[in-house]
Simulated scan of single mutants.
Amino acid sequence: MEPIEQTIAALTPLGERVCRALSDKAGQLGVASATQAIAPWAKAEFALSRDPYSGADSLIGTWRDRHGQACGKIMFHGDGSAYAEFDILQPHPQHPGMIIVAIEAWLRDGVVKTDLQLFPEPGREGIS
């Protein structure tokens, strides 16, 4: 096996957990897309990238939409931590006037946490 294939295989269980956390968050909010799965691990395009400071390799996965545009990424760092984000670009169902730009997930010490990138709708005044 090539080094990148070995790295992908070794990180698949954790990667799938992070991806599931992104997907679960989208499902809880009711913003999952009918045309594209949210952050499927198996659909990411992977590459290794060397951190110039630490010299450690990071595994970087990119998701693309049906037009080939990047719509998300997942990064596993040499210390075992990870960060992922997946574009949503939909109105927030519980907060009128806000747009969910992306769902983010972090993995550190085996714990996955999620959050939202939010932005006010353009032209909205008095967002609460």
Rank of each mutant, 00 (worst) to 15 (best):
E2S: 15
I4L: 09
E5H: 08
E5S: 09
E5I: 03
E5M: 05
T7F: 03
A10R: 14
T12I: 04
L14N: 08
L14A: 09
L14V: 01
L14P: 00
G15I: 05
G15M: 05
R17F: 01
V18Q: 15
S23E: 06
S23V: 02
A26V: 14
A26Q: 14
G27L: 03
Q28Y: 05
L29H: 13
L29M: 12
L29I: 10
V31A: 07
S33T: 12
S33D: 15
S33I: 13
A34I: 13
T35F: 06
A37F: 01
I38D: 01
I38E: 01
I38W: 02
A39N: 04
A39R: 05
P40D: 06
K43W: 01
K43A: 07
A44C: 11
E45P: 00
F46G: 12
A47L: 08
L48Q: 09
L48A: 08
P52I: 06
Y53N: 06
G55A: 05
G55P: 02
A56G: 00
A56H: 02
D57E: 09
S58Y: 07
L59M: 07
L59G: 06
I60F: 07
G61M: 11
R66I: 07
H67F: 00
H67Q: 00
H67N: 00
G68Y: 05
G68S: 07
C71D: 07
K73M: 01
K73Y: 00
G78P: 02
D79M: 02
G80T: 04
F86W: 03
D87E: 13
I88Q: 14
Q90Y: 01
Q94D: 10
H95M: 04
H95K: 04
G97L: 03
M98T: 07
M98Q: 09
I99M: 07
V101G: 15
A102M: 15
I103P: 08
E104G: 02
E104S: 05
E104M: 03
W106S: 10
W106E: 11
W106T: 12
R108D: 13
D109Q: 14
V111G: 11
D115P: 09
D115E: 15
L116F: 08
Q117N: 14
Q117W: 08
L118H: 03
F119N: 05
P120E: 12
P120D: 11
E121I: 13
P122C: 04
P122H: 05
R124E: 02
R124I: 05
E125W: 05
I127K: 06
